[in-house]
């Protein structure tokens, strides 16, 4: 369209003043994280490379890997690593089965019941960790509810020791982590068109086959995020092993506590911290990578 006669001579608009980028808003939080988390953790890791000296917490001394050699040469030390790993693995495995079952229960529940079931499933999370652990101590103690019930039923003659064993730690951990797993799986289940399992049934698939061939593969992403969350929470849990496993629970975290609060061998303790962090990272990345490979063909 032609310019009208009254139109002014067009001119280039001057470049507008660039406003300050909102990206700078991350700066205060970033500084805080760097100074309160990243640098301290880095400092601690560096400390692990200084010769062990109970009571010393400065950077004096030559760089050395002696602390690591000490850790890996003595079964008393490296067994904590192994125990932490298998307790966490077992916890994660049991949590996966129970959490999956709960997710299926929620998924298939009628809308009316659903709210209540979700509340029950979330209840362990809604309760203070100390209160929850105390509850388990009442349940599992030598004169606890479980032992009394088993004695009354004549299943056992003597109270069995459950508290202060790895079994107690695992029970306590599974109890808190089941909600995370259930929610992660549920998120995946909810993305499945309910017609898909129905369609599989019309082809003659049994319920078990539907679960194994349809639901399980489709919930790999949820399951994977559940596994990563639960494993990293289990590996780093402190309160439950400390209270239910006792001071000699043999878990890495309680061992860390001893090194820093009792033995005061901070430089050796720093080795444990470094290993704990490394373990968490390795497990997280490998589970996520595995899940990505398993779903690569059909999910974006």
């Amino acid at each position: 369209m032609a310019l009208t006669d009254t139109a002014p001579a067009p001119r280039a608009a001057p470049a507008p003043r660039k406003p300050v980028s909102p990206a700078w808003l991350t700066l205060p939080g970033l500084c805080f994280l760097v100074f309160v988390l990243l640098l301290p953790v880095g400092w601690l890791m560096a400390l692990s490379l200084k010769p062990s000296m109970p009571g010393a917490f400065t950077m004096e001394g030559d760089w050395t890997i002696a602390n690591y050699l000490r850790f890996f040469s003595q079964p008393f030390y490296y067994s904590t690593l192994i125990k932490t790993l298998w307790v966490s693995a077992l916890t994660t495995g049991i949590t996966a089965v129970l959490g999956y079952a709960l997710a299926l229960i929620i998924w298939t529940a009628s809308p009316a019941k659903r709210g209540w079931i979700v509340l029950i499933v979330l209840s362990p999370l809604l309760v203070s960790i100390v209160a929850r652990t105390y509850g388990w101590m009442i349940m599992l103690g030598d004169r606890g509810i479980l032992n009394q019930a088993l004695l009354a039923l004549g299943v056992i003659e003597e109270p069995i020791q459950i508290m202060y064993t790895s079994a107690a730690v695992i029970v306590g951990l599974v109890h808190v982590f089941v909600p995370f797993m259930a929610l992660c799986v549920l998120t995946s289940l909810e993305k499945i068109d309910p017609k898909v399992p129905e369609a599989a049934m019309t082809f003659g698939a049994s319920r078990w086959a539907v679960l194994r061939r349809i639901l399980l593969p489709l919930t790999v992403p949820g399951l994977a995020s559940g596994l990563t969350i639960v494993f990293s929470l289990a590996i780093s849990s402190y309160v439950t092993p400390a209270l239910m496993g006792g001071p000699r629970s043999g878990m890495l975290t309680t061992f860390i506590y001893q090194q820093f609060a009792v033995t005061l061998d901070w430089r050796f303790g720093a080795v444990l911290v470094t290993l704990l962090l490394a373990l968490t990272l390795v497990v997280l990345t490998s589970i996520l990578a595995l899940a990505a490979r398993m779903t690569a063909t059909w999910s974006k």
Partner: peptide, 20 residues
Amino acid sequence: IFLSPLIVPGIVIGVALLVT
């Protein structure tokens, strides 16, 4: 980075702060 406090074990956060 911002969500890392969720991954770093609580006991590590505590120890690191104590030491530094």
